[in-house]
């Protein structure tokens, strides 16, 4: 099974003619991703890595079934690109771009909700269903097929932990990057619900960080889950962060600290790994592997 994407997902690469996008198109193809089309306004008619490029997403959708798009366009053009894909009916939109204005993000996320689509990012490394399909930028060799679902905010921290899992023979069903920005499409709870329903997934690794209250909200759902959850929270050693006027402090009211998150998750029955490389052992224990 896996969640959100699999070996049958037809993928479009938005901005495919760009330097980063063409490099990662090659990497995604090497992983086995079924990329069927690319789109760059004004560059229609050319090919990148053998993939046909179209001027608009609608045009690509007339020629191909597009299940998911991965966006690599510059930040000022990202809102337009994301809305174009959602409006054309694409149900999974992965936005790799970082530096997108927060009010653009809010608009994208609200529109996706009205269309019943998933948005990953902005500022996500992407999503990988182990051995089946990769959308985004993670290095291929660390992501293998298996039974562990992984959900995270931060990219490189995920590579770090997934790399450790793979080195310990623990493959992944799907690794989901929600994105590191303030307003992103998915929350931990959305993804945990999908993993709970997924047959292939036997345990879930949740990679959070200090700030916000997403992890605390997720803890409420973890109480109901039948599958084991192993969490890692980055930022234990971070000095108290900067805050925005009084408003940030008022919203959070003491939430968002390392200690608060660990307590909420532990009380919900999750196992919290003190350091990144403690994760594989906790996963093995949860799965009954020696």
């Amino acid at each position: 099974m896996a969640i959100i994407i699999d070996e049958n997902t037809n993928v479009l690469v938005m901005g495919i003619t760009g330097r980063q996008a063409s490099f990662h198109t090659k990497q995604m193809l090497a992983y086995g991703t079924k990329i069927v089309a690319g789109c760059t306004p004004g560059k229609g008619g050319v090919e990148v890595e053998g993939i046909p490029v179209y001027n608009t997403v609608r045009e690509a959708c007339e020629k191909h079934r597009i299940d998911a798009s991965v966006i690599f366009v510059p930040a000022p053009a990202t809102k337009d690109a994301a809305l174009e894909n959602l409006e054309a009916g694409v149900k999974v939109v992965v936005i790799v771009t970082e530096g997108v204005p927060v009010y653009d993000e809010i608009e994208i996320v609200a529109y996706a909700k009205s269309k019943g689509a998933y948005v990953l990012g902005p500022n996500t490394f992407g999503i990988v269903s182990g051995g089946k399909c990769k959308m985004g930028i993670p290095p291929n060799q660390y992501f293998i097929k298996g039974e562990v679902g992984v959900v995270a905010r931060s990219g490189t921290l995920t590579y770090e932990i997934v790399g450790n899992l793979t080195a310990n023979g623990l493959g992944q069903s799907t690794v989901v990057g929600m994105g590191g920005d303030r307003a992103v499409g998915l929350t931990f709870i959305d993804v945990l619900k999908l993993f709970e329903k997924d047959d292939q997934t036997k345990a879930v690794v949740m990679i959070g960080e200090i700030g916000g209250n997403n992890e605390e909200i997720a803890a409420e759902y973890i109480k109901e889950m039948t599958k084991p959850v192993i969490a890692f929270i980055a930022g234990k050693s971070a000095p108290p962060g900067k805050r925005m006027g009084h408003a940030g402090a008022i919203i959070e009211r003491g939430k968002g600290t390392y200690q608060g998150k660990v307590e909420a998750l532990t009380a919900a029955g999750a196992k919290v790994a003190p350091l990144t490389f403690d994760v594989p052992q906790l996963v093995k224990e949860a799965l009954g592997i020696k």
Binding site: T156, Y159, E160, G180, G235, L275, T276
Partner: peptide
Amino acid sequence: VELEGDIAVMANGAGITMGTLDTLQA
């Protein structure tokens, strides 16, 4: 962000950078 310690750190990504600081401190 400048801190008080003695090991300069460069990593790529906010999450892994925090994870690196956490590990050094541990």
